[in-house]
Amino acid sequence: MSRRAAVLGHPISHSKSPALHRAAYAKLGLDIDYSVIDVTVDRLPAFMASLDAGDNWCGLSVTMPLKAAMVAEVDEVRGAGAHLGVINTVAFEATERGVRRVGHNTDVAGIVQAVRNAGVREQPVSAILGGGGTSAAAIAALHDLGARRVDVYVRDVGRAAEAKAAAAAVGLAIQLRPMAEAAAGMAGADLVISTLPPRAADGLAGELESLPAGSTGVLLDVAYDPWPSRIAEAWVSRGGVVVHGLEMLLYQAVEQIRLFSGADVTADVIDVMCDSVGLSRRGY
C-alpha cells in the first residue's frame, strides 16, 4: 500500500512543498503519495482526529498558521520544537502500542543550512523581521550560528509572544523594536531574516532604497512567492547577498523526507528537488 504524506496550511495552494517532496520520492523510488490539504486552526483538531492509522500516513508538513496549534495535536515533540513550542513537521512512527505522532521543527536546520551556504560567518550581527511562528525558528537558528543578541522588528509588540518564548527557550537575548526602525537596523546587520508574509515588506523595501548605497550582509527572505520580492531587489541594489526563501524550504524539506521515509537524501536527490522548483544550486 502507498504511504501518505501531505502539507497542511491555510492558504496552501501556493506551496512548493509538493514539488520538492514528490521529486525526492520519485528519485528515491519510494511509493509515498504527497498531497495538499487546506486546514484552518479551528479545523485542525477535527482533521487530526480523523486520520486513520489504516490509511498508512507517514508524515505531515505544517505551515502557517498551524505551527503552534499543531503542538497540541501530537503525542510527543522532539528536538528544537520541544523548546520552541512551534513545529512544522509530524512524523508517524510505528511502535508496539500503535502509531505515535511525533512533532519536529525542521525550519531551524533549513535556515542554518541556507544562510551558511551564503557565507554567513559565526556570531553574526543579526536582525529578524516579524515575531510570529517562523521567527521562533529564526531565533533558534541564530542561536545555533552563535549570535549574541538579535533585534526583532515587529508591527505589534503584543503579538510577538512566539518570538519572546523562543528567545527564552534557547537563551538568546532579543530586543523587540518597532518596524519603523527596521530599515536603518537592517543596513548595519550581517544577517537579516525576514519572516514576513509575501508583500508585507514592500514598504520597507522603499525605505531601504532611500538609504545611501553601501556594503550590506545577507538577507534570507522566507517568502518565496512572488520572487524576487521587493525587499530582495532593494537589498541587492545596495550590494547585499540574498538567499531565496526556497533554499530554506528545500533544506527543511530534506529533513522532513528523512523523517518520513528513513531514506538518505543524497546530493543527487537534492539536485532533482532543486530542478522541481527552478532553484539554482548553491554550496550543498
Rank of each mutant, 00 (worst) to 15 (best):
L204R: 04
V218I: 08
S135M: 05
T40M: 06
V218L: 06
D75G: 13
W227P: 12
R121Q: 05
G29L: 01
Y284T: 09
A118V: 12
R281D: 13
R230C: 04
S15Y: 07
A19D: 11
Y153G: 02
L20E: 02
A127L: 04
Y34P: 06
L208V: 03
D275A: 14
L129Y: 01
R43F: 01
V71H: 09
D55L: 12
D264W: 15
S215M: 06
I193Y: 14
D38E: 06
T95P: 15
A127Y: 08
R43T: 13
S2N: 13
G283P: 11
G130W: 05
L246R: 15
R159D: 07
G81M: 02
R149P: 02
L220G: 10
M48Q: 02
N117G: 12
L60C: 08
D107W: 05
P212S: 03
Y224L: 04
D75L: 00
R149C: 06
A161H: 14
A6S: 12
A182Q: 10
T134C: 12
V90T: 05
L211R: 05
E122S: 14
V108S: 01
K27Q: 11
D144F: 14
R78V: 09
P212H: 06
S135W: 00
V74W: 10
S276Q: 02
G245E: 03
S229V: 08
R101C: 06
G203D: 10
A180F: 14
R97V: 02
A173L: 08
A163P: 07
H21A: 00
A263E: 12
S276E: 09
V74H: 00
E76W: 14
H21T: 00
G146K: 11
H143V: 02
C58A: 08
A232P: 13
D268A: 01
V7S: 05
G262I: 09
V254E: 04
G262S: 07
P197N: 09
I174G: 08
H10Q: 12
H14D: 01
L176I: 08
M64G: 06
T89P: 11
E96F: 15
G54H: 00
